[in-house]
Design a protein around this nucleic acid. Structure first.
Lengths: 341, 341
DNA sequence: GCCTTTTATGGTAGCGCTGTCATAAATCTT
DNA sequence: AAGATTTATGACAGCGCTACCATAAAAGGC
């Protein structure tokens, strides 16, 4: 007689079989009630629901996933959690997933495609219903997995390229370009740029290139740039601007890769007594709430991060199967004129 | 003869059995190699590893979880993602989990215990190895699940209470109290408080109470308070301070529930030409980077969010079994004197 | 009333992996 | 050298659920 093998589980952990027995139905019927799937008589459903409540039954998703070869997990791979940008995206995703059975599993790649690949593979072990990641640039191995997997894929933030399945975001190259055009039109001529050390932030690079090409079209070029030897932060922007101005006091505008750093730039100006806008224009990117609450609202570009996350998750839920057509959704961006450039 | 039932899975999805066959070993041996568990001869390990690489084998975690009645998932329930505080905590958790097999599954409760309960139950369906949540206050049902589950539990942020298993955080009541003591010692007497509308933010309430009791000890009390009718934001702080001062121009210090709102307060002062610190003290909570990068660094309390997340996850990994003793880890807090109070 | 369709339910066989026990070979004791 | 221990491997059942098929009863069509 085979020995019972439940030494490793709680003795009082009810299974579907227990529910079915108590309700006087078969397991499969109880399963249908739990999954709200297939035709069930109202009276039967009520009995099963009562049994579930009585036993405190919690379905075992591992068993469900195994049997159905699919899960309700959605893998989310984000480059960073250090500023509010990706939490905003995650919030959008989470909002779309509320009231659905799907749950986000998150991983942080540190802007490193190899880490992204490693985390992706470990996530695939859960047979996720969908994978969400940032950008269109992945390792060849990652790309292969994404293309051949039995799950939907959304690539967020960026739309300058060929997506695997769905891309939701904006053109960062264009954002950079429009930044340049806007500032030139406002009379700025001597441009500085303050970057940070994350060289794999493809979106920041695209904006930089867009800016440069706008300058070039106008017969201008960057007068100076400085790369802060650390990750992006307000402090980084403040210090970077100080260094830039020390070497090039004649700059009349400085563009920052994001609002955090741009705020730091403004703080430097306040500290050094430099008249922002009149003496030196400051331009950011993201349109963070805090920059707009300043007495002198930051001139910047509003990226629609929450919308990107929410739209992507909603699109993914529309169909379980990957359609023949790739989808690109441009959420666009708004120039916020502000008062600093 | 039973029909093959693989219509629902990719034909080219290799299983452990395929790996074992190719390596010329049994399934269980291949399994041991994958899990790095039990004694394996070097030559055998090499053969299995080769087979895995050749086939591009990805383990099926659903099957693994089912068979072993446990998963490598760690459920993380956070109240909000709207400011950087909880992403910081999440970053700490993620840092501790890197290089381990564990993966965080996140849920957002919106500071609502009922939503927390609902998400908790749906997470338990994955038989997580651990559950991380914020605060010590949960619904009775949630608490029951947490107490009886076969997983570790960490309650973050707050330590004023009885944890289920591990609590990591600081005393918010004490933080509020110290804030009051500090400001009184600096000569402030006419206190204002600007709150936001999230009444279920227990930590903010505890700080408020602590502040009040410090005032009371000194024979003082809050002169005025204003509740901004929306969630916390920089804009909320700015507007709330304007309203407070309109009604009570004689306040000499205003305490905010967090740095975001305090920054808004400073922005109002800048806009209205009020000399911060001399004319009106401003005090926040959290010690955000941006507040410290201002020309006039924000006076605030540094909460150690990253450390809390990291410490909690590390503690959870120490032992799979819940120990008899409950653990409380006080990560403390630092008063940042700053230049605004 | 006979046939088709729809509705409601159940039997059975796995999904891919790991716990448990068993076994054989290698190494260590005394 | 005989026994005790450690190391390396395998057979097998079953984790809890759902896909697949089958069946029976009820409803609809002409």
């Amino acid at each position: 007689m085979p020995r019972k093998r439940n030494a490793h589980r709680s003795p009082d952990m009810p299974t579907l079989a227990d529910v079915a027995r108590l309700a006087g139905v078969s397991e499969i019927t109880a399963s249908r009630v739990v999954r709200v799937q297939g035709p069930i008589a109202d009276s039967t459903r009520a009995r099963v629901l009562t049994a579930i409540a009585e036993l405190g039954y919690i379905p075992n998703r591992a068993a469900g996933s195994l049997a159905s070869a699919g899960s309700t997990l959605m893998s989310v791979l984000l480059p960073s959690l250090s500023n509010i940008v990706f939490p905003d995206v995650l919030r959008g995703i989470h909002t779309a997933l509320t009231e659905t059975a799907f749950q986000p599993v998150i991983g942080v790649t540190d802007y490193d495609p190899l880490i992204e690949e490693r985390i992706l593979v470990s996530f695939l072990a859960w047979q996720p219903a969908a994978v969400i990641l940032a950008g269109l640039h992945h390792t060849p191995t990652a790309r292969r997995h994404l293309e051949h997997g039995r799950f939907r894929v959304a690539e967020l933030m960026d739309i300058d390229g060929e997506p695997v399945d769905i891309a939701v975001g904006m053109s960062h190259r264009q954002a950079g370009y429009e930044t340049g055009k806007h500032l030139i039109q406002r009379g700025y001529r001597r441009f500085g740029y303050a970057r940070h050390n994350v060289t794999t932030d493809d979106r920041a690079s695209a904006r930089y290139e867009g800016l440069c090409s706008a300058l070039q079209e106008a017969g201008l070029s960057l007068v100076a740039e400085h790369c802060y030897p650390d990750a992006s932060s307000t402090r980084a922007g403040r210090d970077a601007l100080a260094i830039l101005l020390a070497a090039h006091p004649d700059l009349d505008v400085v563009v920052f890769p994001n609002d955090d750093m741009a705020m730091g730039g403004i703080f430097h100006c306040m500290h050094a007594g430099i008249a922002v806008k009149e003496k030196l224009g400051i331009f950011g990117f993201n349109g963070l709430d805090i920059g707009q609450a300043m007495p002198m609202p930051l001139s910047t570009i509003l990226s629609k991060r929450f919308l990107i996350g929410k739209t992507a998750a909603e699109k993914l839920l529309e169909s379980r199967e990957r359609p023949a057509e790739k989808t690109i959704i441009n959420t666009g961006f708004d120039i916020i004129e502000g008062a600093t450039a």
